[in-house]
Write a protein that binds this DNA or RNA. Structure first.
Length: 435
DNA sequence: TTTTGAGTTGTTCGA
DNA sequence: GTCGAACAACTCAAA
């Protein structure tokens, strides 16, 4: 084993091209050993048919093949990174460990522990910004504090945006710095990991779809139209580059760029306000007396509420692991404001089902719907699922696809009455927040 | 420090 | 059908 190596630890960046942390390791003057860890702390919480594990496995395999084509190899391990990273650093006699930063509470805690463990052996643990365009304290108010309102944040975000933010990291020019391995190891199988290998859903393509981007503003609100990019899962696992996508958005579609800024915004919020991952951003909203009726919750999960747009959305989610953005807002508003069920129940259900699940965006979005978030919709603003259907799926193309029995006698009757429950919810919120 | 204007994606009512 | 105002009140950002 050479004595002048560094590790590069792939996490939510399952690609070689335009990878900031990988680039930093390749240009550090050391030979680079790329690694990936199936984190058992995370895997143990998932069901054996979790589709995202299949997605990850698929892209880890692709990554491994790419490294092998460069005469190197991706070394894949299974276990707890807190133990594995220090021991792997010893095994490969690494001087440094490089990775890309992750802003979730679990990751921050984990990385802090690893940093301290490596420090004892005088090994540097070096993080890079790769998951977002602007991170942490890059976009802050004039008083040095983080923004909690989106519009001024986005203005500042745009005003400080430079070529540096969007430049591509040309890793492929430096692949000669990868440590060579003549023996190629094989990748652990999904079965060995304890997961099913048959994919039940189709994974969206990872091409950055310019055609979608150019019509995004006009088409994104109509669930029957294939007008959204479906790139969320690729951004989540870093199988496409956020810089590349932001560059395209900047040139083609301001509305889409704004969505990417929302993504940065929520990543920044979860970094500065980690409590908002699990609790209300505004503490007063943790006093809301949610009804949390399990029968109603089950009906919502299964798409049997009797409100066709809500049911179509939930069935799309259950079947495909995806839900159209507009419909996500409608079902979230319905769960919290019509059924008076805690947004955490809905967030947890999305966490289990959504292929593109991202903790920061999920908590942020749900709290926006519930009214408890930063810059959230006011509590008295309640989506009318019937009116939303009229506005965005007038011809019932989306609804008929997912709820074929709609309009027949076999379709379930509405489980609650809009006018009654929304009045009740406004009264409950008003009472709670004013007391 | 005080003041002022503004705040992702809505709905309902009445003219 | 269309339009503007009210909804209810607060917090945030910036001057």
């Amino acid at each position: 084993m050479e004595n002048n190596t560094v590790l590069f630890w792939h996490r939510r960046d399952l690609r070689i091209h335009d990878n900031h942390g990988l680039y930093k390791s390749l240009t550090s003057g050391y030979k680079v050993v790329p690694i990936f860890i199936f984190d058992t702390t995370i895997l143990s919480k998932l069901k054996s048919d979790d589709q995202r594990v299949i997605f990850i496995h698929q892209f880890v395999k692709k990554l491994k093949n790419q490294y092998q084509s460069f005469g190197s190899d991706l070394h894949v391990y299974v276990g707890n990174p807190i133990d594995l990273i220090p021991s792997l650093a010893q095994k490969y006699k690494a001087k440094k460990v490089f990775t890309n930063r992750d802003y979730e509470p679990y990751a921050l805690e984990r990385d802090k522990t690893i940093f301290e463990k490596l420090k004892l052996s005088e090994i540097d643990f070096i993080g890079s910004k790769d998951h977002v365009i602007s991170e942490k304290n890059e976009v802050i108010k004039d008083d040095g504090k983080p923004y909690t309102v989106f519009t001024p944040y986005s203005k500042k975000w745009k005003s400080i945006l430079s070529d540096e933010h969007l430049k591509s990291y040309e890793t492929t020019k430096h692949t000669n710095q990868l440590l060579s391995f003549s023996e190629k190891s094989t990748l652990i199988s999904l079965e060995e990991l304890g997961f099913q290998k048959e994919a039940k859903v189709n994974f969206p393509e990872d091409r950055t779809a310019i055609s979608v981007l150019s019509n995004y503003s006009e088409q994104r609100d109509f669930p029957a139209v294939n007008g959204t990019s479906k790139l969320g899962v690729h951004l989540r696992f870093g199988t496409i580059s956020i810089r590349e996508l932001a560059n395209q958005a900047k040139q083609t579609n301001e509305t889409y760029l704004n969505e990417l800024i929302w993504r940065d915004f929520y990543q920044m919020i979860i970094y500065h306000f980690p409590h908002s991952a699990e609790n209300s951003f505004r503490p007063a909203y943790d006093r809301i007396p949610w009804e949390n009726n399990e029968t109603l919750f089950k009906a919502w999960c299964e798409g049997k509420t009797g409100y066709p747009l809500v049911d179509a959305g939930m069935r799309e989610l259950n079947t495909t692991g995806h839900m159209h953005n507009r419909v996500r807002m409608v079902v979230a508003s319905f769960l919290t404001k019509h059924l008076l069920i805690d947004w955490r129940w809905g967030a947890a259900y999305f966490a289990e089902k959504l292929l593109d699940f991202e903790l920061a965006s999920n908590s942020g979005g749900w709290q926006w719907a519930a009214g408890s978030g930063c810059d959230a919709a006011p509590y008295f603003r309640i989506f009318n699922p019937t009116l939303q259907l009229e506005k965005f799926d007038k011809e019932l193309r989306y609804v008929k696809h997912w709820v074929p029995e709609y309009g027949t006698a076999s379709y379930v009757k509405p489980i609650v009455e809009h006018a009654i429950v929304t009045k009740r919810t406004i009264a409950v919120f008003k009472e709670t927040l004013n007391s």
